[in-house]
């Protein structure tokens, strides 16, 4: 049987810079994978490539054996491939309630309805507030996003992804910008995800990575240099080198 999600020999260069070099990986039902790597390793680019926000130079993306490489972002979401954004992308003038309701309506095929209001749909309202509650956002349900703190906007970003009920979820640094005291909300939300959902999370907080992931993939300079158990990653010579190199550069800058 073909894996739930498969990436095959993905390549991408910006000008002369090879940002994604021959990346292949696959995820199965229920996988909890962390994708780590120094800044600029190409993690976000990888997510952009597989979700259709960027076009790869070559390589394929498959969902359940079906080649979705030619799908636009919208069709990939409908195929069950959902992402969150490293830098929050929300509707500044809309409320968390409207955001989540819109995602639910979209999933249910009701977002094209030209009359009525989601607030008059009890099932949509119930699910909206269940989702907001998971991320402790209920009290902010009616506040425009432009007036809520960035950390909470990050949580809403995750709520949106959850509301789409994906098969494969790609989270790009969900905890970046969330106050440390609130990261438990993200962990709680992750813990409540359906067991058969495959999750790939990009994350820098190693504590979070070790608690969450059963498998770690390390990307450095566009290349996968490690794919295995979390415990083995820290002892891997190439991983150490990549990180030490990264830190050395970082402190020199």
């Amino acid at each position: 049987m073909s894996p739930l999600f498969e990436v095959d020999h993905l390549q991408k260069a910006f000008g002369g810079l090879n940002v994604t070099r021959d990346v292949s990986l696959s995820l199965g039902k229920g996988d909890r994978v962390a994708l780590i790597g120094p800044n600029g390793a190409g993690k976000t680019t990888f997510v952009n490539l597989v979700t259709g926000h960027l076009r790869p130079d070559s390589g394929q993306v498959l969902m359940g054996g079906e080649d979705i490489s030619r799908f636009n972002p919208m069709r990939r979401v409908r195929a069950g491939l959902v992402r969150s954004f490293q830098v929050t992308r929300l509707f500044a003038e809309m409320t968390p309630e409207e955001h989540v309701a819109l995602a639910i309506l979209q999933r249910q095929g009701k977002s094209g309805r030209m009359a009525g209001s989601f607030q008059a749909m009890p099932d949509v309202m119930r699910e909206t507030y269940e989702t907001l509650e998971t991320l402790n956002l209920t009290a902010l349900g009616r506040v425009p996003v432009s007036e809520i703190a960035y950390g909470q906007q990050r949580l809403l970003e995750i709520a949106l992804a959850l509301a789409l009920r994906p098969k494969v979820l790609l989270l790009d640094e969900p905890a970046a910008g969330v106050p440390h005291s609130d990261t438990f909300l993200i962990e709680n939300a992750l813990a409540q995800l359906p067991a058969d959902l495959a999750v790939l999370m990009i994350e820098h907080d190693m504590d979070l990575v070790f608690r969450f992931a059963k498998r770690v993939i390390v990307l450095a300079a566009g290349e996968i240099i490690f794919d295995g158990l979390p415990g083995d990653a820290t002892n891997d010579a190439r991983v150490r080198e990549a990180y030490l190199g990264g830190y050395a550069n970082g402190s020199a800058a």
Binding site: P73, M94, A101
Partner: peptide, 20 residues
């Protein structure tokens, strides 16, 4: 819902397509 979707498009079309 359609009107809300349109307002969403005005504010961030990329987010709207990422919602499917």
């Amino acid at each position: 819902p359609f009107g809300m979707l349109c307002r969403g498009i005005r504010q961030d079309p990329v987010r709207v397509s990422a919602m499917g």
